[in-house]
Structure formats: structure tokens, C-alpha cells
Design a protein around this nucleic acid. Structure first.
Lengths: 120, 120
DNA sequence: CGCCTATATTGACGAGCGTCGATACAAGCC
DNA sequence: GGCTTGTATCGACGCTCGTCAATATAGGCG
């Protein structure tokens, strides 16, 4: 695996193919957590559902979402479950209807993850 | 699809299951673009590769990355290609070696996407 | 030229994802 | 109680993804 670098005899800063790089500062566990977050948003429908929920002051019921997208009700429910499992949204029951809202604080951590991947 | 709401006769703000919600402000095309970005980061190895590249002042060659992760060289090359295709990183050839760097400006657009999903 | 090393690409395989149809559950109304 | 409606879950299908082994390409060195 480790390359035997051809310039090894040349003195100076370019003695090997590159300076030894530090191990990633992001642990494997942290990376998996963030990967799950990104994966939850790696679908255009879920992005747009999240956008609709974020733009609505009031909680939104499922039937409204079903009308907005060219997908069946089970598909919408599935996407909502993915967003629920990652805590991007939460649901509240009112009689027969289910109302969904964005979890603002959870989405706020999102740019923070991007920052840590770049800086830490 | 559209629900016939049982409270339709009751006057007042709760005349239907929920207020009519605006269509998503994020177009389907924009959502697909962002979904591709998120998908590129929806893998723990790619997150950590990106983190290593971001932490290194100097460009990093592939053999160094192969040593850092318990994956074969083809797998690392594959992940680098995904990151290249989404312009998160770019590569530069120096003789036999390929050196990778993060595309800072491209990653800066990332929190902006999160902001637009929430606010716009 | 031929050999060697670094990296990219290909093909294959198993696993997971998105969608749909069918069904189950929950709650209100008769 | 039964009926209806809204929502969630299940099973199946096709598709994509991540990984590996094998191979191809590219560049340096003799």
C-alpha cells in the first residue's frame, strides 16, 4: 500500500510524495451520524417536503403534502418517516389527521456539521 | 387524493384540516441538484476523506488516503471520483501521483443550501 | 523499447433505497 | 356495533450504491 516514493533521495520539503497527513479529525462514528443526516436529504422529494414545512407557519397535514407532489400517499408517508427518524421533522396527531412541523434546532446543526468537516 | 374535510361546515379558521400550503419554493430541478450534493456526502468515508483534505494545507496524494482508511485503492479512487464529479474536490497530476484538494468555494455553498431550504 | 509503480476504470455481487399496490391501524360519525 | 376516511406499514419490484478483484491507463526509469 505505502508507496516507495521515487524522489526519496532528493533533499528538501518534497522528500516524499506528500507530507504525512494527520488522521481524520472526524471519528468514524461521527461521520456515520452525519452521513445519515445527509442521506435523509439526498432525495429531491424530501428536500421539497422539508421546504414546504419550513415555509408554513402552521403545521401541515399529510393530505396537503400528497396533493403537492406527484407521488402516492404511501410514498409521502415513507419520506416523512425518514425525516422523522432523523428528527428533521416531528408529527402531532389531531383527531384523524397528522400534522408535521420542521424541527428547527435539528436543521440548525446542519451547517455546523459542514463547518466542522471543513475546519476542525 | 384531496380530502373531504369533515369540519367543512364549521366556520372560523379551522374550516379545513389545514390552511392551504404554498407550493414548494424549491423547484424540482434545484432540489435534484441539492440532493446530488447531499448524496455525495451521504457516506462516512467520503466525509472523512473530505475532512482530511480540508485539514491538510498541502494537496494530498491518493496513496496517503489509501493508508488512512481500511479500504482498497479502487474504493478510495471511486469515492474521490464521486467527490470530483460534484466538484467538492479537484485533482492535479504531478508525475505519477495525483494530488487532491478541497474546493473551498463549492463547500461554502453548502450551508447556503440549508438556509434556502429553511427560509426561502 | 520494456518494466515498474500509481491511479483509474470495469464488471460483478450483495445491500440498501424509492416507489407502488395492498393491507392494517386509528379515529370520527352513523 | 359497523362504515368511512386519513395515515402508517408491509411486500415486492427495479434501481442505485459501496465494495472488491481484475484489468487498463499513464507516467517515470532503465
Amino acid at each position: 500500500m505505502t508507496a516507495t516514493h521515487p524522489m526519496i533521495a532528493i533533499p528538501g520539503p518534497a522528500a516524499s510524495c506528500c507530507d504525512t497527513v494527520a488522521s481524520p479529525a472526524v471519528s468514524a462514528e461521527q461521520a456515520e451520524t452525519w452521513a445519515r443526516w445527509f442521506k435523509a436529504l439526498a432525495d429531491p422529494t424530501r428536500i421539497r417536503i422539508l421546504n414546504v414545512l419550513a415555509r408554513s407557519v402552521e403545521p401541515v397535514c399529510v393530505c396537503e403534502l400528497v396533493d403537492l407532489f406527484p407521488l402516492g400517499q404511501p410514498a409521502i408517508s415513507h419520506h416523512l418517516k425518514v425525516l422523522r427518524d432523523t428528527r428533521f421533522v416531528f408529527a402531532e396527531r389531531r383527531g384523524t389527521f397528522m400534522y408535521y412541523q420542521v424541527n428547527q434546532s435539528c436543521l440548525a446543526e446542519f451547517p455546523e456539521a459542514a463547518r466542522q468537516i471543513l475546519n476542525s
